[in-house]
């Protein structure tokens, strides 16, 4: 399919068109950018760096019902994700889309997770290339990503100044481009070449990096290394780094019952940095301190995950570095891993 252009003065009408689906776009409240469902195109905020909360919350909601029940009745009513309908996530960053592609492997491994996978099927991802890296702590290029990366995306938009260049990447993307055809025009000649230049320039602006080669194999050998004590000393044990990580996918399952006897079993994000995460009913905790928890977080991303799924569970979005209250820096930890002996 031919590349198109979406003129900036037509973005609103295009978004209006998309509200016939469940449209998710970045929206700003105070200084915080969060992906949420929008009804009105004015709510969308596309001039953003990156969202505080990654768009994983759309396909993997923070709290999600698995099934409902009535106390005392044997019938369990399964949640039908289909009812949510076709969803379009508009304007997400390439790293966050790539994160979804990575997490797909976990949710389709062995047992298929029907909720997540169904929702992924229903969702079309319209990415927005990073002409300027959103933060100084971006390091996507170290992990096989790129500010203009297309992995996981269905459409890539590139900001060309007065318009967006629209490139459909998948069948789903082409279908959506079709839907929007009334608002699209042919892309000016030379746009694609210009976009390639912008991409190269953007990659050059990614300031931080890490050579990940050998880290997955090395991490298990550093099990008792003193570095874990050092890097976790300042850790507060909060959930910022994991909840805001686009690839973190751990969850808890809880039952909730109302006074009426109606109840649900739901899952909600959980964090390996919380002490209750691994706490046994007996009171024993196999990861009793922040040292073990930090070690597990890093090892899971950079060793366990690649061992099983052949890809590092980190996309280099930099959120955990930017938002950590005590400036724990995953790149610094990884550098120490590389240097450790």
């Amino acid at each position: 399919m031919a590349v198109k252009k979406l003129s900036k003065d037509k973005v609103k009408e295009a978004l209006q068109e998309l509200t016939k689906f469940r449209l998710i776009a970045p929206a700003k409240s105070d200084e915080v950018v969060i992906f949420k469902q929008i009804e009105n195109p004015d709510e969308a905020y596309l001039e953003y760096g990156n969202s505080t909360v990654p768009p994983k919350r759309v396909v993997f909601p923070q709290t999600e019902t698995l099934f409902r029940f009535l106390r005392g009745s044997p019938e369990l009513k399964e949640k039908d994700v289909e009812e949510e309908g076709t969803t379009v996530i508009f304007g997400l960053r390439p790293c966050d889309a790539r994160a979804m592609a990575i997490v797909d492997r976990l949710f389709s491994w062995d047992y298929e997770d029907p909720y997540y996978l169904k929702r992924r099927q229903l969702t079309t991802l319209v990415g927005l290339a990073c002409v300027e890296p959103p933060s100084v702590n971006c390091f996507c290029t170290s992990l096989g990503g790129s500010p203009f990366g297309t992995e996981g995306l269905d459409i890539l938009l590139t900001d060309m100044g007065d318009h967006y260049l629209v490139q459909a990447l998948t069948e789903k993307g082409e279908k959506l481009q079709e839907t929007l055809s009334a608002h699209l025009e042919d892309a000016p000649a030379g746009d694609e070449k210009k976009a390639e230049e912008l991409a190269a320039a953007a990659e050059g602006k990614i300031a931080r990096s890490i050579n990940t080669e050998g880290i997955p194999e090395k991490l298990p050998t550093l099990w008792e290394h003193e570095l874990w004590k050092k890097v976790s000393a300042a850790c507060l044990g909060c959930g910022i780094c994991t909840f805001l990580c686009p690839t973190c996918h751990c969850f808890d399952i809880q039952d909730e019952v109302e006074e009426t006897g109606e109840g649900r079993r739901a899952r909600m994000w959980d964090s390996c940095m919380f002490s209750e995460y691994t706490l046994h009913a007996s009171g024993h905790n196999p990861r009793p301190t922040r040292r073990e928890r930090t070690r597990n977080r890093i090892s899971h991303k950079y060793s366990y995950y690649p061992k099983r799924f052949e890809v590092i569970a980190c996309v280099g979005c930099g959120r955990c570095i930017n938002l950590c209250p005590v400036n724990i820096d995953i790149l610094e930890i990884l550098e120490q891993v590389v240097d450790a002996s």
Partner: peptide, 24 residues
């Protein structure tokens, strides 16, 4: 409605030092 319950506000607080927090 924005809160994601990461509990960073609790954990960073020097006065929130209960070993067994009511929230958990």
């Amino acid at each position: 409605s924005r809160c994601i319950r990461c509990y960073s506000c609790r954990n960073v607080c020097p006065m929130c030092y209960c070993e067994d927090c009511v929230l958990d």
